[in-house]
């Protein structure tokens, strides 16, 4: 009888990482990113903690991955390591190791629990080429006038219908420097999670808003919702406070 020849090594430390998914890398799926990330850790020589068993896996937890095709300035991942590291050194090493387009923006030592629970909502920015600002504003007004807007999304288990309105906390229209229509959303994370695509489906449904060119979606931030529901705060805040209160 063969036994696993590797013992379980409990992580010595855990680190929370905020990274961006930019440019053409937004076409990477979450699974693509997982492979990219694990290899980047190995290239950088990060001393990872591994799970036990015949098939040891590095200790990595991914939170709320953005959909394939969407960019992000606020993706989060947590790693467990076999040695204590300087978060700044880790950030630099990992950023240098990842392919361009995946950029490490921030690293903190995990000093608190329940991190994923702090990711209460997301701020999204949707660029809508070939959509006029006034059409967009009209459509948004029509959507906000409703209290319940049911849309359909194809999932692996078939078509699923759900409301997009209740978790949509804030919507703003505007334009960017090139004059292209921009939609900024604050969405509360719930089950099923309302995605930017679902909100666009809602706009299409209530006001026949057409998007002739594929919209470009970017997650700008994730974190605890502000009291007025118009934004989010830094989810690393509690870790930073704890580190300041009681340095390791």
């Amino acid at each position: 009888m063969r036994t696993p020849d590797r013992e379980y090594v409990a992580p010595v430390a855990r680190y929370r990482i905020r990274f961006a998914k930019r440019g053409r890398m937004r076409f990477a799926s979450h699974r693509d990113f997982q492979r990219v990330f694990e290899r980047a850790l190995r290239r950088a020589g990060v001393p990872m903690a591994y799970s036990a068993g015949f098939s040891p896996h590095p200790k990595i937890s991914y939170a709320n991955a953005v959909a394939t095709g969407a960019a992000s300035e606020a993706e989060y991942v947590e790693i467990g390591t076999a040695a204590a590291l300087d978060p700044t050194v880790l950030q630099q090493a990992l950023d240098a190791s990842l392919p361009s387009g995946f950029d490490v923006l921030d690293v903190v030592t995990a000093r608190t629990g329940h991190f994923v629970d702090r990711l209460e909502g997301s701020v999204w920015r949707i660029r809508l080429p070939q959509v006029s600002e006034s059409d967009l504003a009209d459509a948004v007004a029509a959507l906000l006038a409703e209290t319940h807007v049911e849309v359909e999304r194809m999932t692996k288990k078939g078509a699923r219908r759900f409301d997009v309105r209740a978790d949509l906390l804030s919507v703003e229209c505007g334009t960017d420097e090139s004059g292209c229509a921009i939609l900024t959303l604050v969405v509360r994370h719930a089950v099923p999670v309302v995605r930017p695509d679902d909100v666009l489906a809602g706009l299409r449904q209530v006001a026949s808003l057409a998007t002739p060119s594929p919209p470009v979606v970017t997650r700008m931030a994730q974190g605890p919702l502000t009291a007025d529901g118009r934004g989010v705060t830094d989810p690393f805040g509690p870790d930073r406070e704890e580190s300041a209160r009681a340095p390791a």
């Binding site: 053409r24 890398m25 076409f27 990477a28 799926s29 394939t68 095709g69 392919p99 594929p214």
Partner: peptide, 14 residues
Amino acid sequence: LPLVSKPIQYVGGE
């Protein structure tokens, strides 16, 4: 690219 399966295969940047 948003309309095809596995778009990452066409973007390069390896």
